[in-house]
Design a protein around this nucleic acid. Structure first.
Lengths: 331, 331
DNA sequence: GGATGGTCAGTAATCGTTTACAAAACGATA
DNA sequence: TATCGTTTTGTAAACGATTACTGACCATCC
């Protein structure tokens, strides 16, 4: 079938050990022999079977990224991880589809030695299970924490980010400020934190919270449309809206435009994540940017270091967020 | 270190062969023994080392998808592949970043037995190399062909799709019809086919081709903006534009709006791919939908079948496209 | 000339599984 | 009881690599 190290050895007239040495350190092998072996390898098109190698070495030099969906926010994080590990590790991506069983199945790749480490971007796995796993395996979370877990987590201060946006809305004279968020705080505890920031900012500025200004449903575009419909049908519609994702913001904007509301004037809209979409729609979306690339790199660095050091990584790393002002909100 | 089959065997007081049998067929093992072994496995939290297993079995039961970028068009194809192989294969995704060397490195996973098959969505690998690889390994292409290659390819008839759109434009009385495409026909031969369809449709309807109506640059949003700027500065600007991606269409629309042109009336714009973005921007984008999910499933099915049958798959499979009429073009 | 040391290469054990083959256990039959 | 089938189990050889250990070979030095 496939060409193995044995075939190369035979062809080159040396032992498999020598071939292996050429493949690796090549220190204790004469130049002449190395040349011959390399020629044979070249000529036969030999490529070492990583199963054999990894089994023996007890490591795979690859890391797994579990994304909840094939959406586009993750691109930055993935690139960051990729760049950080460069030639040291292969990066594989798998989709967990936000279901616990799929996620656990994927995390099983740690146990069965398919990968050396895993990065999750939001998960349905509970803190207890996660902590049990991350005590033994190298696991990192990006952008989304898990309430009560000590697993390595790299993310922004979501409470503060929301607090900042609301504060700026208020500084600009807005008082009727709404929030569009998700009711699924299992997979997105960040939305809880953002809600908290929203509430605290209002409280700190003596503005009372109006339950009708908080729309909770799901992450996506259509929910944004729904939210806008609700808000705009209110006797006193909000003057500003913070959405916990850019997709939601896009939905709000679309519906507002449809109803003839001037977004950026009559209604200010701020999103979250700074996905590419933000610059594509008219008006362009003002948003809170997460340093996705840096989050990825930082998480990967921790993972690789701990892999090298032979322990598992823990704790939370907070990265800086940034408010990017475009057209949909002046801020 | 990790728990192995030997540990389980010892603990259960049986041989490793018996444990292995319980793990697999479990046919020739008594119920009593099976129960004991399963209990021990459960209790010790044993999970078989896939490196050992795969090495022995000479297969990994996993397939690799190489995407050119982390963009969102691929979601559908990925889901299709995923669903088709369900519990039979793990699906791993890696990003080739449209560089030949990265792609080749990833395809090396076939040679080193990390995966059983690979799916590419557009590649920079040349036909010769690709054919050499696909003669030995299980490789499939989705959505983008490679000129002159016999590798299994699943895609729509891009020439026909463009032809259809242009024909409909003409039927609606448009004569000044532009095209926004890429000049990179290595990675996207589909754009060549679409160009051909555009030209043929014009020719078949006796409309002369105007070189200034063809904008060639790149795939993305900003190129769409550039294209619109060019078109709209022409003494006779086009009445309709076909863009070979939705992102380009979004760019064209954005710039047109900025210049006060009513998209869908003064200027009709049609995109390609039917990404989620289409419904998000105002006006919503009329586009050519590829049956991404079906493309993925079909490709995966071929791959799995040939894997089972022990040969490599070849040839081209054409799927139906569909024009989805929204607001940016009446068609 | 024999002891010493340094290079270079080979032998064989090992990583964790699966599985062909052999052997044991067991009940049934003569 | 001896024999014969059937289960059921164990032994050991793969799978393809790495690497500790050993030894061959050669040059150097006393």
């Amino acid at each position: 079938m496939s060409i193995t190290i044995k075939d190369v050895a035979k062809q080159a007239g040396v032992s498999v050990a020598t071939v292996s040495r050429v493949l690796n350190d090549s220190s204790a092998v004469s130049e002449e022999t190395a040349r011959i072996v390399n020629d044979v390898i070249e000529q036969m098109g030999y490529s070492p079977n990583l199963l054999g190698r990894n089994l023996r070495r007890r490591e795979t030099k690859s890391i797994l990224i579990v994304v909840p969906s094939t959406g586009s926010f993750y691109g930055g994080v993935i690139k960051g991880i990729q760049d950080e590990v460069e030639n040291d590790y292969d990066v594989l991506i798998a989709c967990g589809y936000s279901t616990r069983s799929t996620e656990l199945r994927l995390l099983g790749m740690l146990a069965n030695h398919t990968v050396d480490a895993a990065v999750l971007m939001g998960t349905r796995v509970e803190a207890k299970t996660l902590d049990a796993l991350s005590a033994v395996y190298h696991i990192g979370l990006c952008s989304e924490s898990v309430e009560g877990s000590n697993t390595l987590t790299v993310l922004i201060d979501n409470r503060q980010a929301a607090y900042d946006v609301i504060t700026r809305f208020i500084a600009n004279g807005k008082e009727r400020i709404a929030l569009v968020t998700t009711d699924d705080n299992i997979i997105a505890p960040s939305s809880d934190d953002r809600l908290r920031g929203y509430l605290e900012a209002l409280a700190d500025n003596g503005i009372e919270v109006r339950e009708e200004y908080i729309f909770r449903k799901d992450y996506d575009f259509t929910c944004g449309i729904e939210a806008a419909k609700r808000f705009l049908s209110l006797p006193e519609p909000p003057e500003a809206v913070l959405c916990i994702s850019d997709l939601l913001a896009a939905g709000v904007i679309k519906e507002a435009l449809r109803q003839g509301v001037t977004v950026g004037e009559d209604l200010e809209v701020c999103g979250f994540d700074n996905v590419e979409l933000c610059e594509m729609i008219t008006p362009m979306i003002t948003t809170v940017a997460q340093p996705a690339y840096q989050i990825g790199r930082t998480c990967a660095r921790s993972l690789v270091e701990s892999l090298r050091a032979g322990h598992t990584p823990h704790g939370t790393i907070i990265m800086d967020h940034e408010i990017i002002v475009r057209e949909s909100a002046k801020l």
